[in-house]
Design a protein around this nucleic acid. Structure first.
Lengths: 249, 249
DNA sequence: TCAAAATCTGCATTATTTTGCGTGTTTTGA
DNA sequence: TCAAAACACGCAAAATAATGCAGATTTTGA
């Protein structure tokens, strides 16, 4: 058995059982414990696992790297955005705001979609730069650091000149009375401009955003064409939203 | 049996069994282990398999994540860019081009530096969005996908209006006669604009870029104020560059 | 067609890597 | 605190690789 095979074996067992024990591995692979220890040290150096006294455990998520974006509730978000894939067609002009839900959406966009996408979110642009058939335009401006999006007059100016078929807007908060609201003033302005520029407005969010509010109004419910949540469209908690005329996916 | 046939045989066996062992192959094909090893080295160079001690295994496709940026020779690049840290001061206006060397530089910029930085590279902007004291401005435009930078007229227009104290330009190729040259026309234009906009022009690169050339000229050696390489500034291979009046760090 | 050049292959030699074992140290848990 | 378990380190044997060289084979170009 090759060393590389052994390493694979160890990694597989590690993921399956959350941990590996040096003595068990030595027995299972019929090798000395020293060899196993050396293997574990190597894998530890490569940051593939964390060696501990007696064996090794899975590496704990490393949040210090900017490029390692941690999306909370990624699985749920995948289910939400999957519903919206049917809204995509070839040759559309699309605007995408920031937010982790939109990032998950960007990941799921099919590789053969031919479209033009405008965005002002760094992670979303990075993700979309994978897609060979998408014309990607980044809207520049001053960076809002934590959200990793550009904001300000530069962004507004560019957005207001776009004629888009559809826009995907992340939502901080939504309720029947105020509609879509945001915590930041500048972001709310940018989103207003996005809505103005687009024929169809889509917002995707999980149901815990429902019936909450933030200081800065983006738009009325009426201005949204479609909302996409994790709930069944006929769910009673969406009753009032349905009444307001929004299409619910 | 032709070598090409052998390679096919090896690849087939590899896919079937997940691994191949040098000695087995030598036996099966009735050839010396040396020949098999040479074959495996060739296939490894073509990235068709991964040679390991004792044989070879399938290549693991780890590159699927956009956010997992692989910087070749990162350690060497760290040493290069560390020399350039002394050029940074509070309250400077800085322009940074793309490239992995500049990305490494961005990582090493001290957290307490107060400055304004313009860039048109997604990874560099992501990295700098970490820094609490930097005013970060992203220069928007059409994305060039593989390099993850914006290009085109939008970029030129913004850059040409900046008045920067210093700019850091990545280099594809440099030589004494043509100066800085680039493989892409559009990138060369953007870099020209950067140089125009900056009081001081700095270029960082490893010595293997020295004495090479690409189709599109960016600028003369004279227009560079400072170059930073992995070599000692007094290294003989930098002699001609020194003569041309560039400051070498 | 033929000779020179390029390529392929195996062998011998040398270098490197892997592995188990002995020895001494560190960690663990009662 | 103490004994057992786990570990680290150096060493040596075995396995595997790299390298130079020579003979064989193929390709090239006149």
């Amino acid at each position: 058995m090759l060393k590389a095979e052994r390493h694979k074996f160890i990694m597989t067992k590690l993921v399956e059982e959350q941990k590996v024990v040096t003595t068990d591995l030595a027995l299972a692979l019929d090798l000395s414990e020293d060899t196993i220890r050396r293997d574990l040290n190597e894998l530890d150096n490569k940051k593939l696992l964390e060696k501990v006294y007696g064996g090794a455990i899975l590496v704990t998520e490393n949040t210090s790297d900017v490029f390692n974006i941690n999306i909370s509730g990624e699985e749920e978000k995948k289910q939400i955005v999957a519903k919206a894939l049917s809204l995509l067609h070839d040759d559309q002009v699309i605007i995408m705001s920031g937010g982790s839900t939109n990032l998950v959406f960007a990941k799921l966009i099919p590789a053969d979609l031919k479209a033009t996408i405008y965005t002002y979110s760094l992670p979303i642009a990075m993700q979309l730069s994978q897609h060979p058939n998408i014309d990607l335009i980044f809207i520049g401006g001053k960076m809002q650091k934590n959200a990793m999006v550009t904001i300000g007059m530069d962004v507004i100016q560019v957005v207001s000149k776009i004629k888009a078929d559809i826009c995907f807007i992340g939502a901080s908060s939504i309720n029947v009375k105020q509609g879509l609201t945001e915590i930041g003033y500048e972001i709310s302005i940018v989103k207003k401009a996005m809505i103005e520029a687009s024929d169809r407005v889509v917002s995707m969010f999980s149901s815990d955003k429902l019936n909450t509010k933030m200081p800065h109004v983006v738009c009325d419910l009426k201005q949204l064409d479609t909302i996409v949540t994790n709930l069944d469209p006929r769910d009673p908690s969406l009753e009032e939203y349905r009444k307001s005329g929004v299409f619910i996916l």
